[in-house]
């Protein structure tokens, strides 16, 4: 294969992996701590993208738009958590899945009502190209990868160095026990949910200049995010990182070889991994108590 094509393919795959990683980290944390499957993360992704669009059109600065997307999706997540999820934490897993799917579908309806159904383009923050090993690569894609790397480091520091992060890690092991120590777990839940929502918003905002923003975008990325979460194992940050890198590269390199493969190959890999290990690469066997 042409090495130039390969290098740009790898960079493309890394940028896709970054978006998938930012999204699935939220899903994974929410599952780990609260034992919910929060499909509405895909809504915050769309919200982030649409805010990036609107603010960048109004202010002319895409980065400002991404920032606004993060803030607004975090706030939306806060409202949803307060009014809906708080009531259903103690229910079965399927319960949260159905409810959050309802929020997702309803939210897509709200987005349609506000922004309409026409896909919108978002300007690239920087049109520059940089040469790596003789291949021209868009700087913006590298920036996306860099931001995702920073987020990973940030999340790692947060979970390992702050007391709230330690409490979240402890809660992933046994939330009842954390509560028994005297730690207000519902505040812990809110913090985790808002972080998850804000990261999904960040993913949407960063992804927006690379694609067209449209109301169904959350549903389009859904299959990939699911595959990432399933391959990596629910509740594991490390697994999420590894599997998003796998899925990103498979999508990108696969499409270089044979375009339809880009969609089918990750799915085949997912089935294979589930065949060997039904809980994903790094998934634990924990179940909801």
């Amino acid at each position: 294969m042409d090495p130039q094509l390969l290098i740009s393919g790898v960079i493309f795959g890394l940028s896709m992996a970054s978006v998938y990683f930012l999204m699935s980290i939220g899903l994974s944390l929410c599952f780990g701590l609260m034992r919910i499957i929060s499909l509405d993360q895909l809504l915050y992704y769309s919200v982030g993208a649409y805010l990036a669009y609107t603010v960048s059109v109004v202010s002319g600065n895409v980065w400002l738009g991404v920032l606004a997307g993060v803030v607004v999706s975090g706030m939306t997540a806060l409202v949803v958590e307060r009014f809906i999820f708080r009531r259903i934490y103690e229910r079965e897993l399927t319960f949260s899945m159905i409810t959050s799917f309802g929020i997702l579908i309803g939210g897509v309806g709200v987005i349609k009502a506000i922004w309409g159904v026409v896909p919108r383009p978002v300007r690239m923050p920087t049109p520059d190209l940089v040469t790596i090993f003789g291949t021209e690569v868009p700087v913006y894609r590298l920036m996306v990868v860099g931001i995702a790397a920073l987020v990973y480091i940030g999340i790692w520091l947060f979970l390992n160095k702050t007391i709230i992060g330690k409490a979240i890690r402890a809660g992933i092991e046994d939330v009842e026990h954390v509560e028994g120590l005297g730690i207000n777990v519902s505040r812990l839940f809110t913090i985790t949910f808002v972080i998850a929502g804000a990261l999904s918003g960040l993913a949407g905002g960063l992804h927006a200049p690379l694609i067209m923003v449209d109301p169904q975008m959350g549903l389009e990325v859904l299959a990939f995010v699911f595959m990432v979460v399933i391959i990596g194992g629910l509740g594991s940050i490390k697994g999420t990182l590894v599997s998003s890198l796998i899925v990103g590269q498979v999508v990108s390199i696969g499409s270089l070889i044979y375009a339809p493969l880009a969609l089918m190959a990750p799915f085949a890999i997912m089935l294979l991994i589930l065949l060997v290990k039904p809980t994903g690469l790094y998934g634990s066997t924990m179940v909801k108590k």
């Binding site: 007391i163 330690k166 890690r169 402890a170 092991e173 730690i183």
Partner: peptide, 11 residues
Amino acid sequence: SDLTVRENLEL
């Protein structure tokens, strides 16, 4: 079990 003894006490 994923936390150190110190972290357990910190919590």
